[in-house]
Design a protein around this nucleic acid. Structure first.
Lengths: 212, 212
DNA sequence: CCGTTCGTGTCACTCGGTGTCAAGACGCTA
DNA sequence: TAGCGTCTTGACACCGAGTGACACGAACGG
């Protein structure tokens, strides 16, 4: 799950690039995720038990918890994985770029990934935003992203995060924008353009983000 | 719990101002909250069961859940109740006041209440910020506050929340400041001054909050 | 004094989540 | 090909959060 790209590797030598065991593990992950999505989106989060998801995927409940930390994890990971690269995305931006533009690009990475996945990502977002338990877990993840973003911002601008509130606030603002865009996108059933919404949101935040 | 002021009413006629049943209920709430605080702060959130809290307060587990929706609720409610008035606090500010100042005052209300409760509030905040399960629930509450704040901001400025991102973003910024202040206050073991931190945070946000 | 209402404890149950263990599949080596 | 260690799995037992049902007793109203 950490690097989905492996799935497209092809065996070129007598030894496979990825082991059989790895492929089997990925197969189970996919099957479980698929089953969870189908059942949860159809019947609601609370109406489906972990046993049902596991049975639908053809494994035991115990095995489910060997792959996912919690019932929420199956769904949240879908988005959460997208956000892990957010701080790295910021680090990749040129140092001369103003914070508002750099942060906008960093946040656009997971947002763009959302758009690509199309229907699956949209349903995940809608399910998360409408289910309190999932929403809570998602916010927890966002708090982790905020720490990373904050640290990277402090490094980038040579600020001391222990005394200076700016990095923490700027990271929070960027994620506020992220959340707002996700909400609009979800409410519009995918009709709204995430990139346009992001630009609009950062236009509002820019005066504070780029203040001297 | 919705109106703690009743506790200070005194009986002036032959009929008590509040019924015996009400006072008994409040007594149970206090006892349960007290027990939860003592046990959870001493041993950690996961190391204490609801049965233990209930037994310590002299009631059954079933009764605990008649007063609190979940184990997290006992602690989170402590802060959550403070935040319910945030939107009302904003509504009470003069219409001519710039958003940054109005929001700062609105957010200061629960923050000031924190300072008054002294040690109890500090321990609650520290427990919440250090316990993932509690943190998640707290963030959920904050999301509720954000909706209220957002609606009140839209009303206040005559903006349409369906098309205009500003109210949603401004509310998010205010709560980002709130969270940052809480974090600093918690990390400093109560040494930092919430009011000063709040002023500092809103100085950063003001350019975006008050932009034309 | 009696019927009603309300709060409570007990019991039984569901479900999320974990520890343990034995059995099977795989890879390596002789 | 037989044997051996490693990894994954399912089965089972178990804990704790949370809920529904019911019966009991105390307070309230007539």
């Amino acid at each position: 799950m950490t690097d989905p790209a492996w799935r497209y590797h092809r065996r070129v030598t007598s030894r496979p690039a990825v082991s059989l065991a790895q492929r089997k593990r990925q197969l189970v992950v996919d099957e479980l995720t698929e089953a969870a999505f189908r059942l949860l989106t159809a019947q609601g989060f609370d109406a489906v038990t972990v046993d049902e998801i596991a049975a639908d995927a053809g494994v035991s409940k115990r095995t489910f918890f060997r792959y996912f930390a919690s019932k929420e994890d199956v769904i949240v990971r879908f988005l959460a994985d997208l956000g892990t690269g957010i701080a790295a995305g910021l680090a990749a931006r040129p140092a001369a770029e103003p914070p508002s533009a750099a942060l906008r690009h960093a946040v656009s990475v997971p947002l763009a990934a959302c758009g690509e996945h199309g229907d699956r990502a949209l349903r995940a977002v809608q399910l998360i935003l409408r289910t309190p338990a999932l929403h809570a877990r998602f916010l927890e993840r966002q708090a982790d992203w905020r720490e990373e973003l904050s640290a990277e911002l402090a490094r980038r601008q040579g600020r001391d995060p222990a005394t200076d509130l700016y990095p923490r606030l700027a990271a929070g603002m960027a994620l506020t924008a992220f959340g707002a865009v996700l909400e609009r996108w979800s409410d519009s059933d995918g009709a709204a353009d995430p990139a346009a919404l992001t630009a609009e949101a950062f236009a509002v935040l820019a005066p504070a983000l780029d203040a001297p």
